[in-house]
Nucleic acid binder design. Sequence first.
DNA 1: CCCTCCGCCGAAAACGTTTGCACAAAAATT
DNA 2: AATTTTTGTGCAAACGTTTTCGGCGGAGGG
Lengths: 331, 331
Amino acid sequence: MSITIKDVAKAANVSVATVSRVLNKKTNVSDDAAEAVNRAVKELGYSPNFLGRDLRKSETRRILAIIASTEQSFYSEVLRGMEEAAAVKGYDVLIATTRDDPKHEMHLLGMLFSRSVDGAVLLGPKLDSETISRLGENHNIAMCLERLENCNVLTVTIDNVRAGKDAVNYLISKGRRRIGLITTKQRSQSSIDRELGYMQALEENGIPFDERLVFYGSYEAESGTKGCEALMKLPEKPDAIFSISDMIAIGAMNYALSTGIDIGKEVLFFGFDDIQYSHIFVPHLSTVRQPCFLQGKMVVEKLIENMKSETSDKSIYMLPHSLILRETTGD
Amino acid sequence: MSITIKDVAKAANVSVATVSRVLNKKTNVSDDAAEAVNRAVKELGYSPNFLGRDLRKSETRRILAIIASTEQSFYSEVLRGMEEAAAVKGYDVLIATTRDDPKHEMHLLGMLFSRSVDGAVLLGPKLDSETISRLGENHNIAMCLERLENCNVLTVTIDNVRAGKDAVNYLISKGRRRIGLITTKQRSQSSIDRELGYMQALEENGIPFDERLVFYGSYEAESGTKGCEALMKLPEKPDAIFSISDMIAIGAMNYALSTGIDIGKEVLFFGFDDIQYSHIFVPHLSTVRQPCFLQGKMVVEKLIENMKSETSDKSIYMLPHSLILRETTGD
DNA sequence: CCCTCCGCCGAAAACGTTTGCACAAAAATT
DNA sequence: AATTTTTGTGCAAACGTTTTCGGCGGAGGG
């Protein structure tokens, strides 16, 4: 059916071993033979069957990135980082989506168990910490962006507690004392940590926590709109709102805009993620920027290191974030 | 090193053939043997090496989706369609990004040539039509969303000419006669077709074409802003603007908003794609919606059909689009 | 009682590579 | 000139599966 290395060998009048050697740029092969092989390859339009190769070498030089969906736009930058780091080491990055289904996430990890890829990095896993820990013992798994409590797996992320605290502290430094929080019902670790940061900032500044100021919704923009409405209808309105994601913040601002609130003066808004739209949407949103590219790069570098060595680094690396100050905080 | 089918066979006291049979749910195996094998599999934590399997069966049951980047948010829906159709047939979908680099796109297609995947779908390819046509002769390639002129490859897309015409016709039906067009310098076929639709609509309604009303920029929102500014500074301002993408339209509206133009009355805006943000951004954008999910579903269905049969369907399928009317056209 | 058939199973070939080993010829060293 | 080293090459094993083929034993029909 298909053209194999044997056909090339025959056409070039050499053995398959020799063909393999010139294809893999091994040194001990004569110029004549090499030329003959290359010509045959070109003539026949041969390209090697990686299933055979990978089986023999038992490595695929491929890494699988497992994400929830391609919708979260800031995954894009992380993936670029991953690809860059992978390319340096001669690896390819493949992407697959879990559709928020832990069962399907497990199915995708099957590619790892079945040696179809050499390693996998989880971005926002749906599986529980214990399961991932267990799988991580025998397979090359890493996590990125999102950490999991008690998960003994190589992780690259940011310090979400600190980041949340920094954002809220900034709002406080602008004289705000009544700060709303719009977060999610779904308890991802990053949400939890960012909320924790919010709490800490309040506490450190002697501002009493008021539970009426926190709204639990979903990750949709519409949920932010609802949250903002709820907060603004409080007897004592907030003078600033911290949302745990930019999408939510944009939704919240939509409510504010529609009711004529003077954003950046009357109420300050702070988001998280610095998605592309946060500087397209007017007014421009102040937000926390994650080093997306760097996280992706680092997680792949560390993962590949783990794959090559006997010992396995299971550390949690936290990369520095930064505050991006724009119009919604009056900057 | 790793646990193989041999180990399972030994543990279950049967031959590897039997193990393979129970793993593949073949009928002719006794209940006793099956049970023994299943127990052994569980005990040893065995999972089959797909490299071996795929090599033997010479199929991987995987399809590669090649996209420019994960940034374009409406890819997401297409991918879901692809995954759904693939799952039905027992295939997985992998995603890889070209980073807008034709050379890297070719590298990714190498996965197809090297039998690491059974088929590939190109979404917005960077390679030229001729190259893709040639590769399509010997490999299972399909295109989705974007068609290429003179490209003899299975394609699923929409009728962009017709869609552009419909959008502009709608603006005309609202009494507009001076309609601006914001498009891209980069000549993708969809842009060309949408422009063509714009022209046709004007012509059919006896509106003379005015080249000053068309602005050539990039795909960024900022470019839309610039385009809108340019159009609005014309001696005779447009009374409607059609942008070939929602991102551009949103950028354009940013300019309009900042200069106090009454969107939806003074100037109508029409976008294209119906991205997620087009109904979050206020005012809500009227736009052309593509059947993304359906395109993805169909392209995979057709591709798999091609893979199974000897003959190869190279048709272009055009799925119906629809107009979504919102605030920016006064609806 | 013999033959046939069927259910179940194992041996071995095959898929397409890479690579250790052996070996001849050529080159370099005595 | 005799020895050793180097260079280039081919043979064949190995990677982990699936699947064909044939064999064995027992059941059922004549």
